[in-house]
Design a protein around this nucleic acid. Structure first.
Lengths: 220, 220, 220, 220
DNA sequence: ACGCCCGGGACGCCCCGTTGGT
DNA sequence: ACCAACGGGGCGTCCCGGGCGT
């Protein structure tokens, strides 16, 4: 043929549904993390993802469904990676928890971004029951991972037997999230340092007493 | 009667700028508390306040200014009433703090609404430096009130001398806010009960030791 | 009296209706000249004039009346000063006209501003009959001044007898306004120089022929 | 029939981007011509075009871009059609120019509407540099067409050699626009007749002298 | 099935000319 | 002469559908 073939400028990768969906989710998560769900606009999401509106509405029924998928997939996965897997069969549950807390990034971006789960929870829980339920599921996943680790530790005498695993877990999560919130609005990394120190100390206080130390049970 | 009385509907009160401003702020606070700042629309605010657009833009230069005023005035006042004043000259600082925590409402509305200050902080801190600065100011006000009370208690030997007032205050605020966040997204009043119990216990542990009890200092 | 008299800080001049009206007209003219009538907003006018809305609506029934007054008073006065008075009893009408044309400012502000009368005419004539009529009156005033001067010159044999005063006047005004328009949009002072040169030459061609020059009548 | 035919109401023509854009430009031009750019409201434009906001903001980034496109496309095309093309290779340049001037419509609508280019120039030149530059480009296009025709005529001895093409062109455009301005504000078609007669006479005076007539060059 | 482009409307925020009560 | 309040739009944005190619 004379007329040269039209340049096959095709996009990054033509026709890869899974990849398109993934890119959309990543981009959407990123924007929602920065600007909140209501503050996120679809155009920014698709531009950043490099796809078009049609692609988005092929994979998701709308903005809401996209938000739900962020909770169900992205944030759930983050939680699995960060909390559930490391606590599945830890040699020492308290140390494992402490390590996770210590691993919290103090990079400015994440310092100012806060906790993705908590961000969405604060914004959307009172506005949309669909979000609330999904978020609650992730919180339960997280809670379960810690509480199980604690109970596991109690069985192996690595955690004091006189604490209630659920109450302790709630306290840990609340304090952790609370510090992250303060760090986010103050943009001060020292707040995260306080967080790590305080929670690590608290976790140490949950270890069973040895005869020698005679250290009594902490009260919290 | 046929000829119904001409509605002497005269607005709430003609010509009362302070009142108009107050109504606008109240209404705006209410909506922002429910739906977030970005999710709040001006028309709802003015309708609920019973004033017109013109009135709003007479008192505020725009939505942003209205939001700033919510922090500077409404939320600041709430903080003053709830935390600062009660802690100005308390007979017993720890008891006073505990009472404030205990006074936290468990009404469904406020349970699901969360902490007004923290809500705005989470939503707007990363998006708008003007909000962030103002919110930080209120956090400092709150922090100062508690830390001063603790230091005052230390001087009077009502609070253990070996704690750092600032660190302790940060921990108290973080834990309190964290529990409120969890309560908000779980919509479970028991989370608030845990909050009150845990914080009250912790506050008790800050009392200086008496000879008799010999109870050692808790570690947190 | 003990309570000292309130400082008589009164504004620039307390209660001076004529002055207030004058300031409003000046300010309004200035803004309309810059931004057009539709593009002028009342708030800018009153701020620049240093008076309040109430004052404006005391002197004028609305924006429209203010605009009419600009034509009736400000622009009419400008025309009287610039064209009518100098042409009332000129020793030499053609020279007098040429001098007026030459006096047209080439300052950037007026270069880019164009002719106040023509500006309003172009913008408002098709939109508001009230404006159109008033503007036409000023054009007639202007036209009359020139045409009378020409006729006067013809009587005194200072202007060629074979021209029609009205046609010639229309041509002069059209060409003058046309050049001003081009100068305004090109922002090029050379356009004004062309204007002055061309019109001056044309005016010279209107002088009656002397025997010596034998220069025949120009045709335009 | 009961079950009325489901409306195959298909709009004017479904999915025709070029047509939609065209309709928008036409409608916008029409409104801007009537009411000025500032006085034109977007809703009227889209209603008259039979499209929606979404369509408009798909094709143009905003009102400003729409205005720019009016200059760049609509007015430029009008100028090309009316002035450039007819002057490209005219047998007799002066006659061609005169014919164009004579073709100026005296219909009331266009009489009162004035010159689209000059209208925009007067309104927007001092307010928006983007408009000014674009308008200047069209003026240059127009100017170039006439000046080239004159120079072409000079080469072919159809136009007097002792005139400056640029100066003459500026004079022609200024006078033409000036008369149109006067006609617009007076709404008097006689003004246009004067325009045509005067300019035609002037153009005749630009012809080279024949031996017989001995008529010297007119001065303008 | 997958993705793209064009369009559809509904509000959202803000501004602006205007009017009463003082 | 003035301050407070009024309310009607203006522009722009946003979340979405559908018709079509690939």
């Amino acid at each position: 043929m004379l007329t040269a073939t039209k340049p096959p400028i095709r996009r990054i990768q033509h026709r890869n549904p899974a990849r398109t969906r993934e890119r959309l989710l990543r981009s959407a998560f990123h924007h929602v993390y920065r600007s909140g769900f209501q503050g996120t606009d679809i155009d920014s999401v698709i531009n950043h993802a490099g796809v078009t509106k049609g692609a988005l509405y092929h994979h998701f029924t709308g903005k809401e469904a996209l938000g739900y998928a962020i909770v169900d997939e992205v944030i759930t996965n983050i939680t699995l990676e960060k909390w559930v897997k490391p606590l599945e069969n830890p040699p020492d549950p308290l140390t494992a928890i402490a390590q996770i807390v210590q691993s919290t990034s103090i990079a400015p971006d994440e310092l100012c971004g806060g906790c993705p789960l908590n961000n969405l929870a604060q914004e959307m829980s009172p506005l949309d029951e669909g979000f609330r339920k999904r978020i609650e599921t992730v919180f339960n996943l997280w809670h379960g991972a810690i509480a199980n680790a604690l109970r596991n530790g109690q069985k192996r005498n690595l955690v004091r037997a006189d604490i209630d695993a659920n109450e302790t877990t709630a306290f840990l999560i609340a304090t952790y999230e609370g510090y992250l919130s303060l760090a986010k609005s103050s943009q001060d990394p020292r707040m995260l340092q306080s967080c790590k120190k305080t929670i690590t100390n608290y976790l140490e206080s949950l270890r069973p007493q040895t005869r020698r130390t005679r250290k009594p049970a902490p009260r919290v």
